[in-house]
Amino acid sequence: MYLGIDAGASATKALIVDRKGKVVSYAIVPSGINFKVSSQKALEKVLKSSGLSLKEICYAVSTGYGRALVKAEAHSSEIICVSRGIHKLLPSVRTIIDVGGQDSKAIRIDEYGRVLNFAMNDKCAAGTGRFLEVMSNLIGKSINELSRLHHKSSKPIRISSTCTVFAESEVISHISQGSKIEDVIAGLHQAIAGRIFNMSSRIGFEKDVAFTGGVAKNEGFVAALSKKTGLTPLLPEEPQTVCALGAALAAIRKYEESISHAHL
């Protein structure tokens, strides 16, 4: 069995595959401030749900922000892991738009799942999951509610600021002026979609296009981004674990390499 751990800025994901790359089980836990703790928790959880013991894991690859802090045989960047993961799940995909807790990225891949080019958000948090987290705290709605309320909006507000902190005060002023909460939510989704659209346009949208990352679980955001790009995106069943899957697939490859080296 092979393990991929994606220690992301917001959530830590652990995923186990068998020798053929089939997903056995996965677990998602909040990252908190200590990646060592969160990755340990995710590992325990995934072992428990799969009924496997640590001894049965041949090789582990870590990815994500905290990858260097996670106990694993090797680590790899999210760009590569997301690409490998999506290629396994949806081989027709050529463009990936991945929106995570702290990063958003657009990746172009070829028919073999190899990365051709990528673009990432600049260091600012606008256009990432963090932006939505800040806003959901502000308006007192959970991320799940954001998704539900989005579709009730008939007149989304327009957020003009690109800065998370400024956007926060904009939202406050809209709410105090009596804007409906669903219109605020839809406006926020449009704002983040607009930002991601601009970034992704740098590398182009070759079809098929897939959305991945934790934020792709937010239907409101997916709707806003689909509208903005004019695309019908492919969505993996569990968008949040695509990167961990890529890491687990890398673990198979690396394990096989290490075996063949050993025989040389």
């Binding site: 960047s77 590569i80 190899r114 990432m120």
Partner: peptide
């Protein structure tokens, strides 16, 4: 990537290194 040539307060090391890692992996693939 974005940063400032002289002002260290406008620089995010972890994010930039993360991009460099990814870039090197992309180069290794091509």
């Amino acid at each position: 990537f974005e940063a400032d040539m002289a002002d260290p307060r406008q620089y995010s090391e972890a994010q930039i290194k993360n991009r460099i890692d990814a870039f090197i992996e992309v180069l290794s693939e091509s």
